[in-house]
Amino acid sequence: MEKDTPINELLQKPIVAINIGVQDFAEALQDQGVRVVNVTWSPPAGGDAEMLAILEKLL
């Protein structure tokens, strides 16, 4: 097992997080002193999952 894979680094270094979704999770991380950026997320492509799947294929 290599020692420098991203997983191993995750366990050795402080977490630096990006939160996408429930804002409470970002706040809980912040309360623990974790660096976190919260993404103010909204459903892409007007919330239409089918349209999103098509867009993902096209882009």
Binding site: P6, L10, I20, G21, V22, Q30, R35, V37
Partner: peptide
Amino acid sequence: GPVGATMVRTLDQALNAQPASNLAVVSV
């Protein structure tokens, strides 16, 4: 609160704001 201090709407913007990120917490 403080988590709203950096207002970003996409993962790319978040990575620009915080290039040292190593974990995404996804709950959409």
